[in-house]
């Protein structure tokens, strides 16, 4: 957030709650972050931590019984929560695009690829069908799909998973959006395909200046791709910083545990560490730090909700007992 230009996206105190019969589920609870132009933010967390709902909140695609309760979502200075559905639809797929987790499910099985691409072009641009088709073909070529002209005529089931995800990415890129939200787009893919797609996306982001939110539970993906990381737990961001700092010197006990559970070459032969217990139910979450039941450093004062605070310059953590000794050790 240096300089005068506003970040592409700035989310402030976002709360998205689901009003179910059993009670209120605070899926996203006071989340703030920002993504500057051309940068990649990795939004990391376990299943159910609220990272996908954060993405859908930005897209304005939270369905009832859920809704954005409070907070601001500033996209290039405009608050998206105040836009009408029409204005929002104008941005979606155009200035802000989204890539979904499961490529086998994101393309409509009964419509041809060209139909699904051309309709996206025509939704936001006043061009002829032929021109729209041309753009679709170019986009397919850009994401590395061979003989795009023929592939346009195909149906989704004629593609492999990796190819389908490339098509989905091509659709997201059709209007050269300023912001792409990628919700675990490589989780369902083979490791080799995953690597190819990551490389493509990184290249595109760097060349077009597109800001990227990469939602994932996989720290190793974020490590190679993101500029900054926000770690989410139980609907809150618990730690935020640059990739190098967060991964090398994690401050929050949850981040420490998360990194410890990643199998790595350095600790071959040692048993994997794991975080004991389960993610808490977001329904009627007790007050206080939501991680305290699983936290090795929990104490009496963790019954109070810890605020997000800057414990080391440039490092925000939501914890009373961060792993400061590790950070000091490293800086010393």
């Amino acid at each position: 957030m240096n300089g005068t230009a506003p970040p592409t996206l700035e989310v402030r105190n976002l709360r998205t709650h689901f009003f179910t019969r059993a009670g209120v589920v605070k899926a996203v609870d006071d989340v703030s972050f920002s993504v500057p132009r051309g940068k990649v933010l990795g939004l990391v967390g376990e299943s159910g931590s609220g990272k996908s709902v954060t993405g859908f909140s930005v897209m304005g695609l939270v369905d009832p019984p859920g809704r954005v309760v409070s907070g601001e979502i500033l996209f290039q200075g405009r608050d998206l929560t105040k836009l009408s559905e029409e204005e929002m639809r104008d941005l979606r797929g155009n200035r802000i695009a989204m890539i979904f987790q499961d490529p086998m499910m994101t393309l409509n099985p009964v419509l041809r690829i060209d139909t699904q691409m051309i309709e996206t072009v025509l939704a936001h641009a006043r061009v002829s069908r032929e021109e729209a088709r041309q753009r679709a073909r170019d986009a397919l070529g850009m994401v590395g799909i061979p003989s795009p002209e023929e592939r346009l005529q195909s149906y989704p089931h004629q593609f492999s998973g990796g190819m389908r995800q490339r098509v989905a990415i091509a659709i997201a890129l059709l209007h050269r959006p300023e912001l792409i939200i990628a919700d675990e787009p490589t989780t369902a893919l083979d490791v080799t395909i995953q690597g190819q797609i990551l490389a493509e996306v990184q290249k595109l982001s760097a060349t077009t200046g597109t800001a990227l939110i990469w939602i994932t539970h996989d720290l190793s993906v974020v490590a190679g791709l993101a500029d900054e990381i926000a770690v989410m737990y139980a609907g809150r961001i618990v730690e935020h910083g640059t990739v190098a700092e967060v991964l090398d010197r994690p401050l929050h006990p949850y981040t420490v545990g998360l990194i410890g559970s990643v199998p790595s070459r350095n600790r071959r032969g040692e048993p994997l560490r794991q975080i004991p217990g389960m993610t808490p139910s977001l329904l009627n979450l007790p007050p206080g730090c939501p991680f305290r039941a699983r936290c090795p450093r929990a104490a009496e004062d963790c019954r109070e909700e810890p605020p997000m605070r800057e414990v080391v310059p440039g490092r925000d953590v939501r914890c009373f007992r961060p792993h400061l000794e590790a950070a000091e050790e490293a800086t010393a």
Binding site: L91, M98, D102, M105, T106, L107, E119, T120
Partner: peptide, 20 residues
Amino acid sequence: DFVKFARAKGLSPNRVIFVH
């Protein structure tokens, strides 16, 4: 998912319902 994706593409509700 493909319905949500269609909405994420910015299609009109009519197009999502009557085509997708």
